[in-house]
């Protein structure tokens, strides 16, 4: 039967055509539109129809309240100082950068300090250096009493400072502050870790330039 390949292909084409005709004939207008739309998207594949949507972060403005995870969050200001509360730079010549935020947990359950830390990644252009660990984790202190608030209970306004160590050579007057998206993990089926927690996948929701003040006044 191999000698009849061309004739077979022709037959298959004609058969498909016949089937398509029959199917389209049996469809309502709405169905035709939907199927046509799907076919159209497929036709646009070479032009990037399936590329991930790149979300441009919304502008972050100091003093304006935004919603992140369980928090209503306001980035208040950024301060560079030689010493903040009991925190001092570990390396001589370095300084401290503090991003001061007002945060209020709108949920039903307390939120951990780490959830706030996840929401505000270390500013990339601020010359931040690691402290005792390799990670750029900030020290988080309450502005009112310079104690480490480890839990944000629901319904309370907390004014917190996230403090990083900064390279002493850094000398600019603005930093870029990002606020990352927090996603609620109801049941962790991926890693089998704790359920019911906030997790930052790393997507930036808000981004803004923040003037840096100098001095020790909190």
């Amino acid at each position: 039967m191999k000698h009849a390949r061309n004739a077979d292909a022709d037959l298959v084409l004609r058969l498909l055509h016949a089937v398509a005709d029959a199917v389209v004939d049996g469809m309502s207008t709405t169905q035709r539109v939907v199927v046509g739309g799907i076919a159209g998207v497929f036709a646009l594949t070479p032009f990037g129809a399936w590329d991930a949507v790149v979300v441009e972060p919304e502008p972050l403005v100091a003093g304006e309240e935004i919603e992140v995870g369980p928090f209503d969050l306001t980035v208040v200001r950024a301060v560079v100082a030689d010493e903040l509360g009991f925190v001092k730079p570990l390396e001589e010549g370095n300084r401290l950068l503090a991003v001061v935020v007002e945060v209020s947990n709108q949920g039903e359950k307390p939120a951990h300090q780490g959830t706030l830390v996840d929401a505000i990644p270390p500013p990339a252009d601020a010359g931040i250096v690691p402290r005792d660990t390799q990670e750029l984790l900030p020290t988080v202190l309450g502005v009112a009493d310079a104690t480490s608030v480890d839990v944000f209970n629901p319904g309370l306004p907390y004014r917190m400072a996230l403090i990083w160590e900064q390279d002493g050579a850094w000398a600019q007057d603005e930093i870029t502050v990002d606020v990352a998206e927090l996603t609620w993990i109801e049941e962790d089926t991926t890693f089998q870790l704790d359920d019911q927690r906030w997790f930052a996948y790393g997507e930036v929701l808000y981004r803004g330039r923040l003037a840096v003040e100098t001095g020790n006044d909190q």
Binding site: E108, K109, P110, D145, T147, S148, V149, D150, V151, N153, P154, G155
Partner: peptide, 11 residues
Amino acid sequence: QGRTHWPTSRG
């Protein structure tokens, strides 16, 4: 209201 609050080790 059914909200929960956790204790602190401060103070």
